[in-house]
Computed example of a mutant assay.
Amino acid sequence: MGRKNSEPNSILSNRLILLLVFLVSCGLAYVFLSAVTRSRSTSVSEFGIGSSLVLVGENVVGGCCKGIEHLELWGSAVKWGSEFKLSTSEGCCNACKSMCTGKDGPCLCDSWVFCGNRQACGSKFGECWLKKQKDSLAPEKQEAGPLGGTVIWTSGLIFGKGEGIIGLETEYGTLHVKLFPDCAPHTVAYILELLPLRHCAGCQFYRAESRGQSWDSEGNHIKNAGFGPPFALIQGTLEAQGTPFNKLPIEDCPILRRGSVALIGSGPEFFISLADHSEWKQEYTVFGSVLPEDMDVAEKIATLPTLSDVWNNVHVSVLEKPVPILLRRINKSQQD
């Protein structure tokens, strides 16, 4: 009798175990499918419209996709905004980047235009126009809206491999600088305004400091060493005499690496870093990077004769003779 009474309990127990196994299996299947879906979504995000990592030459720049408000860039449309609407300017910027893979050949898209103010844009709200400039270093732009009103658009530039390179020409050689308009659009716009000037009187390097004993030749900080002085940089100004300078906004500030070209505050003072400066956090607007093969020019300037000085209780090395800078445009064909 006892044995008979235990059989139903045994059957019930087995059924409960099977049910539990089934529920666990469903849970594991759900987790697996969710992971696959997230992975697929991440892949689209990283390499497609939502990309936050973009190949620039041989470097990867992350998290930059900025534009300038109240600016409308003209140019030939490669994607019509009336048929292509997005929710953010960053999405529009990334859509342009997705057409610039970093492979050989020019980018299909080098500028984007987005209307993001629902009230001002009306039916044009969300329109994302992807365009191609005749000259990306001298983009066509509309300064005023209809009847002289405020421009309702936000625009930005994208420079692909071999594009967006300017030269800082000195008597010791030319520093070729790759500009980052997606990180520092306002600063890059100012630099592009200087390019047409035949002379940049007043543009010069006036401070030069070597890596000393704190950083190795690759720019890596040496363990337990100090952080200067010397501070591993060459510093100068990009203010042309006779040309009014308006303070620039503080923009995207990634960690400084060897070769980074950064604005100090609102400009026009700037510097080129000869080493990695993670200790400076994200204090400066990085608007470009010197091509690796030209860093020997920066190193040469850093070894020129200097005088000791004190700025705000900081010991610095000032060049005995400032080094004049001439800004000039570099065409892609000159880099090939």
Rank of each mutant, 00 (worst) to 15 (best):
L130N: 11
A201Y: 11
G226C: 02
N224C: 02
A225R: 15
G202C: 11
S111N: 02
I158D: 04
E90W: 09
Q241W: 08
A95G: 01
L263G: 01
I272L: 12
I264S: 05
K281M: 06
L192G: 05
E90I: 08
L233V: 03
L33I: 11
K300W: 01
K134D: 13
K161H: 07
V56E: 09
Y30C: 08
Q204H: 12
D216Q: 06
R328H: 14
G27W: 00
K103F: 01
N14E: 15
L256K: 01
S82T: 08
D135C: 03
S111H: 06
F32N: 09
T170C: 09
A232D: 08
E239V: 01
I234Y: 12
T101N: 09
G63E: 05
K332S: 15
A77M: 02
N9F: 14
A302P: 06
M99L: 15
C253Q: 11
S82D: 12
V44F: 13
W80N: 11
K124S: 13
G265I: 02
G212D: 12
L33Q: 11
S266R: 04
G126R: 14
A302V: 06
W129N: 15
A77V: 07
S98V: 00
G122A: 12
V297D: 07
W80C: 04
I325A: 10
C128W: 04
D110Q: 06
L108F: 07
D309G: 10
L197H: 15
G105R: 00
P322A: 11
L19C: 13
A189R: 13
A262W: 02
G2I: 01
C121E: 09
E218I: 00
L307N: 14
C93Q: 05
D110R: 03
H315T: 13
E293L: 12
K79T: 13
M1I: 01
R38F: 13
L307T: 15
T303M: 14
P305Y: 10
Q213E: 13
P185H: 09
H221D: 00
V177A: 10
S214I: 02
I330C: 07
S25I: 05
K332W: 05
K85H: 06
D296R: 11
V323W: 04
T154V: 08
S260A: 11
E163R: 00
W153L: 01
C26L: 15
A208E: 03
S333P: 00
A95Y: 06
E269Q: 13
E251T: 03
Q334I: 00
N246C: 08
P244W: 03
T187Y: 02
V323H: 05
A302G: 07
S51Q: 14
W112E: 03
C115Q: 12
V21L: 15
I301H: 07
K332L: 10
L233G: 01
P181I: 07
S25M: 11
I325L: 14
H221S: 14
I191R: 08
R198G: 15
S34R: 14
V310P: 01
G116A: 08
I165C: 01
A95D: 08
